[in-house]
């Protein structure tokens, strides 16, 4: 399924936003349910994430790879994860644009899921993903502002 959206980092210049969005420790602080995010190679990270959609809850382990990095204007991200609730795979594009001292982040991607998590609420997954993304950006904005 397709996930896309925008987030405005108010009064935060693109360089600061870029640093945050590509920094594993910083991401780990703000990603809901993130229990572990360790760098395992160039721009590749191993991740443990606890998530729940409806009645399906559990821990996913997987990897995140950042690629096609184009500092401060954008990068691509590949995510794979699996666990008892099934599996998720995603491919996304994150773009940063300056906007009068602020940064507009535009994201778009395709996510697919399988196993119990797919059977329980394919319709709920995009909503749940949007909620997670939104929480992440809000948290990031607070940390950057603070």
């Amino acid at each position: 399924m397709r996930i896309e959206g925008q987030f405005l980092f108010d009064a935060i210049p693109p360089q600061a936003a870029w640093n945050f969005l590509t920094g594993p420790d910083l991401i780990a602080q703000c990603l809901p349910g993130c229990e572990k995010l360790i760098k395992t190679g160039d721009d590749t990270y191993e991740m443990t994430l606890k998530i729940g959609v409806g009645a399906i809850r559990g821990t996913f382990t997987g990897s995140i790879r950042l690629h096609d990095l184009n500092p401060i204007s954008g990068y691509r991200m590949s995510v794979t994860g699996s666990g008892a609730p099934g599996f998720v795979k995603g491919e996304g594009l994150i773009q940063l644009g300056p906007e009068a001292g602020s940064t507009q982040v535009t994201y778009s991607g395709d996510v697919s899921a399988g196993g119990p998590i797919a059977s329980v609420g394919q319709r709920m997954i995009s909503g749940a993903a949007r909620m997670v993304i939104d929480q992440f950006f809000k948290c990031a904005a607070e940390k950057l502002a603070g």
Binding site: G54, S112, G115, P116, A118, S119, V120, G121, Q122
Partner: peptide
């Protein structure tokens, strides 16, 4: 089932 063979109607909510 979706095109990848995932069952989308897997509960009585769906």
């Amino acid at each position: 089932y979706d095109e990848n063979g995932q069952l989308l109607s897997g509960t009585l909510m769906d």
